[in-house]
Simulated scan of single mutants.
Amino acid sequence: MLDFNKLCREFVEYLQIEKNASPYTIKYYQEDLDIFFAFLSREGVSDLNQLDPKMIRVFLTELYDKQLSRRTVSRKISSIRSFYKFLEREAIVQSNPISHVSIPKTDKPIPTFLYMEELEKLFEVNDMTDPLGQRNQALIETLYGTGIRVSECQGLRLSDIDFTIGTMFIRGKGKKERYVPFGRFAEIALETYINEGRIELLEKAKSNTDHVFLNARGKPLTTRGIRVVLEKMVEKAAVTVHVHPHKLRHTFATHMLNEGADLRTVQELLGHENLSSTQIYTHVTKDYMRKVYMNSHPRAK
C-alpha cells in the first residue's frame, strides 16, 4: 500500500532544506497534495507509476466542478508537478505524467499601491520617544525604502546592514542573495532604533539576538508580528485603505517606475528571478499615467 503521508513528509523536508521554501509555500503544497492524494485513493491508485495524463484530466475536471478559480487550479497542478519532479529525482517513479499537462492561464491581478499622501500619514503616527515607536518607524521605512519581502525583513540581522555605503544584505527566496540600497529616511530611522529603542527592548529578553526587529519582549519579531504592527499603524493613522507588507513592496516598485527607474533595475532590487514578475508593475504605472492625464489635461474629458 502506498504510504502517502511518508512521501509527503519527505517532499516537505526537500522543500525546507533544499528549496528553502517559506512556511506559507509549504502549507499550500501540503493542502494541494492532500486533495490530490484523496483523489488517488478514490480512484484506487496504489502505485504512483499508474497515473497517466488521462487520469490527470479527470482530476482537473473535479477541480473545475468545485468552481475553483483558474489561479487556484493552476497552483494545484503546479504543486503536483513539483511533487512528481521530486519523485523522479528520488527514482520513486519512472516518468512525470503531469509534465505535458498544460496549466490554465491565469489573469494576473494588477497590484494595488499606496499614494504618497497615504504613506505620509503612516510615517507620522509613530512616537519617536518610545522604543516600539522607533521600531515601527524603522520597520515601515525599511519595507517601503527597500521593497524587501516581509520574510526578508523578519530575517534581517544587524550584521546585514552596512551604514557606511547604505546597503542591506538580503537572503531571498530559494537561498538567493542580493544587496539592496536604502535611503536617508530609512538610515535615520534604523540608526535611531538600533542605538536607542532596540537596546531597551533587548534588555527585556533573557537571551541575545542579532535580529534587527524585536517584539515588546525583546524577542525576534515574527512575520505575523510585522503584519500586526502595520495594522495598528493604519488604525492609528486613520487610513481607509488596507495596508500589508506586500502592499509596501508593490508601492516601492510602482513609485520607482513612476519616477523613471528601468525595469531591470527594479527586478534586481525586488529579487525577481524572471522579468515577467516585475513587468506587472508597468500596468500599474500605465494606469497611474492615464489617471494623471485624465485629471490634468484640459481636453482630456
Rank of each mutant, 00 (worst) to 15 (best):
residue 178 R to P: 07
residue 220 P to V: 09
residue 216 A to L: 12
residue 197 G to I: 03
residue 176 K to L: 04
residue 166 G to W: 06
residue 132 L to R: 10
residue 126 N to L: 09
residue 158 L to P: 04
residue 190 L to A: 02
residue 121 K to Y: 06
residue 119 L to V: 14
residue 157 R to A: 11
residue 144 Y to F: 14
residue 128 M to C: 11
residue 113 F to C: 00
residue 166 G to H: 04
residue 125 V to F: 03
residue 219 K to H: 10
residue 111 P to N: 02
residue 186 A to S: 14
residue 113 F to S: 00
residue 111 P to S: 01
residue 134 Q to L: 10
residue 206 K to A: 14
residue 156 L to I: 09
residue 214 L to T: 08
residue 167 T to D: 00
residue 131 P to C: 13
residue 198 R to I: 01
residue 158 L to V: 11
residue 184 R to E: 13
residue 169 F to E: 12
residue 186 A to V: 03
residue 170 I to L: 05
residue 148 I to E: 01
residue 135 R to W: 05
residue 143 L to E: 04
residue 210 D to Y: 09
residue 220 P to Q: 09
residue 112 T to N: 11
residue 133 G to C: 12
residue 114 L to I: 02
residue 149 R to S: 01
residue 156 L to Y: 08
residue 213 F to K: 04
residue 108 K to M: 13
residue 217 R to T: 10
residue 192 T to D: 15
residue 140 I to C: 07
residue 174 G to W: 02
residue 125 V to L: 04
residue 158 L to R: 12
residue 173 K to N: 11
residue 149 R to V: 01
residue 128 M to W: 08
residue 189 A to F: 07
residue 196 E to Y: 15
residue 135 R to T: 03
residue 124 E to D: 15
residue 132 L to D: 01
residue 140 I to E: 05
residue 208 N to I: 12
residue 177 E to Y: 07
residue 213 F to D: 02
residue 140 I to S: 03
residue 209 T to N: 10
residue 159 S to C: 11
residue 139 L to S: 02
residue 183 G to S: 08
residue 219 K to C: 03
residue 155 G to M: 07
residue 215 N to E: 11
residue 153 C to P: 06
residue 215 N to S: 08
residue 136 N to M: 03
residue 130 D to M: 10
residue 194 I to S: 04
residue 218 G to M: 08
residue 199 I to S: 11
residue 174 G to V: 04
residue 135 R to F: 03
residue 135 R to V: 06
residue 215 N to C: 09
residue 151 S to C: 12
residue 113 F to Y: 15
residue 190 L to Q: 00
residue 175 K to Y: 11
residue 199 I to L: 15
residue 131 P to Q: 12
residue 201 L to G: 03
residue 140 I to G: 01
residue 119 L to P: 01
residue 217 R to C: 08
residue 134 Q to Y: 07
residue 188 I to A: 13
residue 190 L to H: 02
residue 160 D to I: 04
residue 218 G to W: 04
residue 209 T to K: 10
residue 203 E to W: 04
residue 206 K to R: 15
residue 132 L to N: 05
residue 126 N to M: 14
residue 209 T to Q: 10
residue 146 T to Q: 02
